[in-house]
Amino acid sequence: MTSEDAAPAASPGAPVQAPPAGVPVLEVKNLKKYFPVRKGVFSRTVGQVKAVDDVSFTVQRQETVGLVGESGCGKTTVGRAILRLIEPTAGTVRFDGVDIQSIDAAALRALRRKMQIIFQDPYGSLNPRMTIASIIGEGPRIHGLGSRKEQRERVEYLLERVGLDAKNHLNRYPHEFSGGQRQRIGIARALSLDPEFIVCDEAVSALDVSIQAQIVNLLMDLQAEFHLSYLFIAHDLAVVEHISNRVIVMYLGRIVEEAAALDLYRDPRHPYTNALLSAVPVPEPHRESKRTILMGDVPSPIDPPSGCRFHTRCPKVMPRCSREEPPAFDIRARHRSWCFLEARDEKP
C-alpha cells in the first residue's frame, strides 16, 4: 500500500489500544433470549418464545464465523443480543474480554464504535432523507472523531474503498442507488468508526447471486485491510462456505453443530447440517445427490420439543432423542455435534 492509499485515521490522536493477546474478540457464553408471549386484556405473560436458548461460542481476531439456520432459529437474535440492540435474558457477552452487560452507557457507547452491524435490507436500513455523505459521516460526527475535513476525507476514502465513486455519489440519496450499491454504502457506514468486529446480518441475502459474490469478496478484502472479525449470519450455506473460517449451525434457538468451514462441508455430522447441505444446489446437472428432505415445519419455539429439539424432523431419530438432550460430542478440535449419533454403536 502506498502512502496515498493509506486510510485516513478514524480517530486522529486517539491512543490505539493493543487488543489483549490471546483473548477472543467476542466470547458468548450461555446466551439466552426469551421473548414473553402476552395475551388477554391485561397482557398477561402466558409463555415464552425461547429464541436463543443457551448458546455459547467465540470469534477469534480476524476470523469469520458463519451462523446459519432456517428462519426463526434465533441467529438474528444472537447477532442483536451481542450488540446489545436487545437485552439478553441470561448469559454473558464479552467483547475484547469486557462483559458488555456490566458496563455503563458511556462505556457501551465507546464500545459500540468497535462493533458494527450490516443489515440485510439495503433499502430499509439507509435513511432516505440523508445524503450518502451524511449517512457515512454520521457516526464519526456523533463520536466527534477528527475535524470536519478529516471526517469528509474518511467518507470519501471509504466510499472509494467499497467501490463507489466518491465524487459523483457523495451528495446523492439512497433511492438513487441499486441494491448492491446500497449494501456497499451500508458497509462503508459500518467501517466509518474503524470497528474491530462486524455482524453481517443476512448482509447479502437480498441481493442477486452475482452481486452477492461481489459483496462477499469485498467483505473479505476489507477484512484483510482493516483486520476485521465477522459474525456472518445467513441462511444460505453456499455463501457462508465461501467467506467463513468456522460455521455454527443453529436450530430452534440452539447450536447443533460447529466446525471449521472445510470440516463442516466435507464431514457434516448432525442430521440437520446434512439436511441444510443437501439443499445447497450443486452446479453439476448430471450428479445424482442423495437429498435429505426435512418433513414438517419447524416446531414452535414457545414449546420446543423435549430432548433433542430436532428429533421431530430428524431422519435418523432414535428412542433416546426425545427423552434426553444430547451433549456436545467432540469430532475434532473445535468441531462439535450435539447428536447422539456420535455415541451410537453403528451408523444408521
Binding site: 468456522r246 466446525a259 471449521a260 472445510l262 470440516d263 467432540d330 475434532r332 478440535a333 468441531h335
Partner: peptide, 8 residues
Amino acid sequence: ETQMPAPE
C-alpha cells in the same frame, strides 16, 4: 475424552 484431530 480422546485425542482430538485439529480442524481441517
